[in-house]
Nucleic acid binder design. Structure first.
Lengths: 185, 185
DNA sequence: CGCACCATGTAATGCGTTACATGATTTT
DNA sequence: AAAATCATGTAACGCATTACATGGTGCG
């Protein structure tokens, strides 16, 4: 699926693997992220499949830039994926919930400590969504005014992040209270 | 991490791979699930690491049952993992959000159709949490009264599932309205 | 008569993480 | 002087999915 994240960004403009990582981290990291090494490997596969092409731009003092451009075939593939409805939900994975489910043996206080730590992590994340991220999308639109309507969808995904974190915070607060009141030592 | 889900259940009682799949599907599938083939492979690795042992129970007319039992080493490993605080959040993955982010080229109506389809999927899931799942935990406690306090934590994870689906439904409704009102055809 | 349940596994492939390897330029 | 940014890649390993392979029992 990273494949489509990369094609999606390359459909806006040609860029390098390094730049793709930047865009992933400031706009989709919430629901899709990948490390640089994975991005480089995936780009290589996309090029083998002729969904992108690359041109090397020589540089001095640092590695040459390899700029990737989406091909017509790549655009068609992206469109096909976008148009195809998703018929089932992603399986969820959440390590904290898994730990909590089996946490009884480590005792009440240790459980509470861990829940409070997570509450803090989620509060920070919510702040990040509210303060830092909104600017990034605005920057992109300034450079590419034709993407103004795309930005409506970008904001919707950011809104999801906010609602998700607010929900998680609420659940943690509730759960901390439940554990305090109901779980024996 | 599946490793710990399996050790967690085996810490309640010895059971087979097949039974483990059942427990995963009725209690943790929300935040951790695995297919049978993956469970069988993971059990094999756990046995090699001496975290579990297995006894074969011969049967007629169907494959022999292989019943796994957690060892002291396995219990210690599980405890260690549970006691170790999680210092960062799981990276989120959500295919619908990824598609939505890049969906502008497929047009307003196709986007709305896909969002409405997902709204339906999430409504079904919420019903499932509210009607079907609560009984499963109750059954387990009836057979193992000593797990009554564990059930407080199980309910907390189920509650997360409900809040998550309710949040997702709210976001989808909001987003459908936003797209209807703001996105040009 | 067909479907769900019981019950186990292997093999191939793909996706993702971590570690390894390098090194100049720019900002604080 | 240190840290962040720019910039690319390979190798090893582990985790997960899908397909393959088998077949009796019990219920509606």
């Amino acid at each position: 699926m990273l494949k489509y994240a990369l094609l999606g960004f390359l459909n806006y403009q040609p860029m390098t693997g390094y730049e793709l990582e930047h865009f992933l981290s400031v706009s989709t990291s919430n629901f899709w992220y990948a490390s640089l090494s994975q991005i480089y490997m995936t780009l290589k596969k996309l090029e083998q499949g002729e969904l992108v092409t690359s041109q090397v731009e020589p540089q001095e003092g640092r590695p040459d830039r390899r700029v990737y451009t989406i091909t017509d075939k790549g655009r068609a593939d992206l469109q096909g994926w976008l148009a195809q409805p998703l018929l089932e939900l992603d399986p969820g994975k959440d390590t904290l919930l898994l730990k909590l489910f089996f946490a009884r043996p480590i005792g009440k206080e240790s459980i509470l400590t861990q829940l409070r730590l997570h509450l803090d992590l989620h509060r920070r994340k919510l702040e990040h969504y509210q303060h830092d991220l909104p600017h990034e999308g605005a920057d992109m639109v300034r450079e590419h005014p034709e993407l103004m309507t795309d930005a409506i969808l970008w904001r919707a995904t950011l809104r999801f992040g906010e609602l998700y974190e607010a929900m998680y915070i609420q659940w943690l607060q509730e759960t901390i209270t439940t554990v305090e009141e109901q779980l024996p030592d």
